[in-house]
Amino acid sequence: MNQEPEFLARAHDPADPNPWLALYLDRSTPLPDKVKKAWLTDSSSRSRQYLLPFLRPLARAFIILIQVVKTFLPRRWSHSRLLHRILAWGLERFVSPEANWLILRHFHLGAQILAFIAANSPVPVTTSPLEPRKIEDLKDDLFVKHDLNLFNFVIRLNQALRDAGMDMHAPARVDYSMIRDPGLRLEDLPHKPLNFLDLQSAIELFTPLYQLMLTDNDFWRAANSLQLDETIGIYAAKLLGAPQHLILVNNNHPLVPMSTLRAGYRLVLHGLSTEMLHSLLMELKAAQEGGTPPAPIA
């Protein structure tokens, strides 16, 4: 588990520079070294290099096929609990520890970001945090609940703002009390010979299963929850009084839903956006506590 990835273990060769090393050393965007190391270890894996190019077109073909099949199934046909048990089983046995660590982190970081917006908004709004400590916890419909939480939060927040005749703006002093490291340990995740599947390949494989075992409405909502990255980014930028931080958003305009065929790829972007926004908030919290201005982001 403590073995260094190849891009860190191998000496730099100016005649053959390692692109993963360049990305690891680059500090133009906020990301902790441990997160960047896990992300790039997963991204540079053989699974992603050799399996993903074959899995992605097959997974997208299955999405089209399943859409055709579901036209003949009852409209409310859904097996969410079974879906989550299959997902947890697959993550436990086949997905890399780095990918599992990033997946579990995502729930914690998303909950903290929503709590940050709620605490600093000019109107009161409730949140429903999801903070799984182990893969087993995901069986409690956590993927579906994660999507529901996001849409419900946006609805509650904006209903309260409309009722109060107010808009989001920077508070006199930003509250970062809820922003913290989740405390999840990479070494606690399964690391057996079959735990080799990278994050993107796993997502591409799981997306057709997600579509098959949920209603069309649930799957469409899950896919289009990714379009709210820009919405959450705008909220955070307004609270921070720093619109330049929208550089962290990369899922394009929320009013233009994209095809569900690209849901797997967009989900990876969503995860990275969440990591970067949380990292930025951690930096700003440390700067506030230390009484020093945060380092500018290039």
Rank of each mutant, 00 (worst) to 15 (best):
I103P: 01
Q112D: 01
L130R: 00
H146C: 05
S128N: 14
N158Q: 06
R133F: 11
M166R: 13
F116R: 03
I103M: 07
D167M: 12
Q112S: 04
F151N: 10
T126G: 12
T127N: 03
I113Q: 02
S78H: 12
N100A: 13
R76M: 15
R105A: 04
D167Y: 11
D140H: 06
D167A: 13
V144D: 10
K145E: 08
L150R: 08
E92R: 10
P132H: 02
V95R: 01
H146W: 04
H106Y: 08
R76H: 14
A160P: 06
V125W: 02
Q159V: 13
R162H: 14
P132I: 04
K139R: 13
F94C: 07
I113W: 03
H84P: 09
H169E: 09
P132T: 05
I86K: 08
L87T: 12
A118D: 02
G110E: 11
N149C: 08
S78F: 09
P132R: 04
K145G: 06
L138Y: 02
A160G: 06
F151L: 11
E98S: 01
F143W: 08
P122G: 01
P97R: 03
F151D: 12
L87F: 10
W77L: 09
L114S: 02
F107T: 00
F143Y: 10
G90T: 11
E92N: 13
E136Y: 12
L130F: 02
D147K: 12
K145P: 04
I86G: 08
K139V: 11
H169K: 09
A164G: 00
K134Y: 13
D140T: 02
H84Y: 12
R162P: 11
Q159A: 15
S96P: 05
A164E: 00
V95H: 00
W77D: 06
L148K: 08
R76D: 13
I103A: 06
Q159G: 15
D137N: 00
R133S: 11
P129G: 03
W77M: 07
Q112M: 02
F94Y: 07
S80V: 15
A164I: 03
F107C: 00
L104G: 05
L83S: 02
R162K: 15
L114I: 01
N120M: 00
H79A: 14
G110C: 10
I155T: 14
A99Q: 06
A99G: 09
R105G: 06
L109D: 08
N152C: 11
